[in-house]
């Protein structure tokens, strides 16, 4: 009984790490630009495919592949910002329009990937082979790497926004664009940096996920939808609340799988979310937008 519970918690931790990486990327773009990027999951997928091409098809090794995937996701993210988000800054309906344009970007990326890489399932080798046992629960070393890397990356992003001048300038732009430009911050550059950073994070996550799950054109959809639940729970406004909610959702999901089985879990999760929203319209942790 205890063993099952520990195994469940550990698998919840793996899920939570994945969701935390996804959701914090969404949060960075949201807090800086006020844009919800629907193509975030697709950026993950692009990175996984590029990583596969570089490391498997070209045989340049997994680390080079992961780096190439991360960079390409960042590049695509910056292009999306420039072409699909920037033209609508200041528009009265910017929030809604950018939801639609980034949704269109998602379709374009997924279908392009299908055309370029085909429908056959692909997978990356693991960065570290072998298995690791945590309190008696066994997971692959690669998953353990994801679990260990996630908090480090989250802390790195947090420290970046709190300590570094560039990170602080992103926060300033997110809170008041006009005042930010009056102290000499280039607002459009800040937007590009935020989008690029968020996309790079999605890219790294995607490349790492490519060793655990199959790489398909729609591999980003499911994590995106889960990350959406996370931001509904945690709000989008603060990195800490978003990351916290991600781990909570990951563990709840693992427990639900244990109790209700794989089929009922997503349904129960969505139902729980809607019930929560009726009572807390800004999410459990989210005080304000």
């Amino acid at each position: 009984m205890i063993d099952t519970l520990i195994a469940t918690l550990v698998s919840g931790l793996v899920l939570g790490s994945l969701y935390a990486l996804m959701a914090s990327g969404l949060s960075v773009v949201w807090t800086t630009l006020g844009v919800f990027n629907f193509s975030h999951g697709a950026l993950m997928m692009v990175s996984a495919f590029v990583a596969w091409t570089v490391s498997e098809a070209l045989g340049l090794g997994l680390l080079v592949g992961i780096a190439a995937g991360t960079l390409s996701a960042a590049l695509v993210g910056i292009i999306i910002e420039r072409l699909l988000v920037r033209p609508f800054y200041g528009d009265r309906n910017m929030l809604l329009i950018t939801v639609m344009t980034t949704l269109a970007a998602m379709i374009i990326l997924e279908k392009s990937a299908l055309i370029i890489w085909g429908a056959r399932l692909k997978q990356l080798p693991r960065l570290i082979e072998g298995e690791i046992s945590i309190f008696g629960a066994t997971i692959s070393a690669h998953e353990a790497l994801l679990v260990a890397l996630a908090p480090l990356l989250l802390i790195a992003i947090w420290q970046f926004t709190v300590r570094s001048t560039v990170g602080r300038s992103l926060r300033a732009v997110g809170q008041n664009q006009e005042s930010a430009s009056l102290i000499g911050i280039d607002v459009s550059k800040a937007f590009a940096i935020a989008f690029g950073l968020s996309a790079a994070l999605a890219g790294l996550t995607g490349a790492l996920l490519g060793s655990i799950r199959f790489i398909t054109p729609t591999m980003g959809s499911e994590p995106l939808v889960k990350a959406m639940i996370v931001v509904i729970f945690g709000g989008l406004g603060s990195l800490g609340a978003t990351a916290g909610a991600a781990y909570v959702i990951g563990i709840i999901e693992a427990l639900l799988i244990l109790w209700l089985g794989l089929y009922w879990t997503p349904f129960a999760l969505f139902l729980l979310m809607i019930v929560v929203l009726v009572f807390r319209p800004n999410g459990i942790f989210g005080g304000r937008e």
């Binding site: 001048t165 602080r168 300033a172 809170q175 008041n176 005042s179 009056l182 102290i183 000499g184 911050i185």
Partner: peptide
């Protein structure tokens, strides 16, 4: 340099952070 009306700054940031950031150029 313009000092805007003061109600419009970066509400969630700390005073020292804001002043440190302001020497941006």
């Amino acid at each position: 340099v313009q000092s805007p009306q003061g109600n419009t700054l970066f509400g969630e940031m700390r005073i020292q952070e804001i002043l440190e950031l302001a020497a941006f150029t």
